[in-house]
Design a protein around this nucleic acid. Structure first.
Lengths: 190, 190
DNA sequence: CGCGACGTTGATTTGCCTCAACGATTGTGG
DNA sequence: CCACAATCGTTGAGGCAAATCAACGTCGCG
């Protein structure tokens, strides 16, 4: 829990009331590798902060293929924000890649936090802006780069995923097959 | 200006003070077709609301090819949010596709608005969330759909762009060449 | 009028996928 | 602790989606 407090505190310092509100609003949970915290068809009712561990969020398409939209490790947020706000069933799945510890807040508690402590409005606005910026960059990259360029950029941008996320998962994230990623890697290593 | 007031008012009703603050914070501008409101290398210092007209935001890649990241028409926002917040030079261009009328707010005025009238924090948070959701969907679509599926979805989602944005621009948005889009259209019309 | 953007078509090339096979590693249950 | 299954990473042959390049008619605009 204290890791979340200090995460917030780094963005915008919190007073004791606000810290206490955070402690009351979030609840801790442990999940094992391969467990799901969201499955397709369900409404995403919580926003999740990763204290320890690793997750992937992905969609299954009509041909039963999985496409990773996002990973999340320590101090990252994860959730289907579309389903969370619209309260419609999600098309996404969120699965633990490692045994993990998370902190979750329910929608109503988050809204309450925004009303009672406006500071969190600002914090979450900034957080959403940063996510938006990174998705924008990714759209641009998808429509303008080759698979090799996307892979090189991925490794440069997220070096800490090395040895933590398999190449199968990385391939799915950058939008190629594992076989082709293998050929890319072979090609680069020369 | 009143179109912006009623845009805000629809999301979260404004009192007279807040309306006045909006009038003071934004300034109106007219731009002609082919004029730029942001060019690569400059810092994006303003957030823009389109009152009338149409814009496209695009990147030029190393092979001098243009890639449209976003369009904006009446009641849409446009700007390079990454450059706006980081104050680093933008890699994007924003060009008027039609003669247009816009309302712009400078970064410092927007921050002031957030501080003086917290309601705008919430409004802009919601606006950013919606943008994030749509970029997420686009990333997923780019890594999971064929060009034809992306085109069909584009036309269904944005039917009001029909006859307003050329196929060259649409092709660039969905990430294909104009020649291939032409073949897709031929194929669909059967 | 003439020029430049647009939309289209065809021929060719290429980036990436599909399918099949294999050894190496990991994990799991008996 | 071993045996077996499952997942992973890799390689190769063949195929398909989309890019490239070139050409041409149309249209709006200066």
């Amino acid at each position: 829990m204290e890791s979340l407090i200090s995460y917030f505190n780094n963005l915008l310092s919190l007073d004791d009331d606000e810290k206490e509100a955070v402690r009351k609003s979030f609840s801790e949970k442990r999940v094992r590798r391969r467990q799901f915290i969201l499955q397709e068809g369900n409404i995403c009712k919580v926003n999740t902060f990763v204290v320890e561990g690793c997750f992937r969020m992905y969609m299954i398409d009509d041909n039963a293929k999985e496409h990773n939209l996002q990973f999340a490790i320590e101090n990252w947020w994860i959730g289907d924000i579309g389903s969370f706000y619209s309260e419609e069933p999600s098309r996404l799945n969120i699965e633990a890649i490692e045994n993990s510890i998370i902190l979750q807040i329910k929608k109503e508690d988050q809204l309450r936090l925004f009303i009672d402590y406006p500071k969190f409005n600002r914090i979450f606005r900034v957080f959403t802006e940063n996510a938006l910026i990174s998705y924008q960059r990714r759209v641009l990259q998808n429509i303008s780069s080759t698979a090799e360029e996307r892979y090189v950029d991925f490794m440069k941008r997220y070096p800490f995923f090395f040895n933590r996320i398999s190449n199968v998962q990385i391939a799915s994230f950058i939008g190629v097959t594992p076989e082709f990623l293998s050929k890319i890697r072979k090609n680069i290593s020369k």
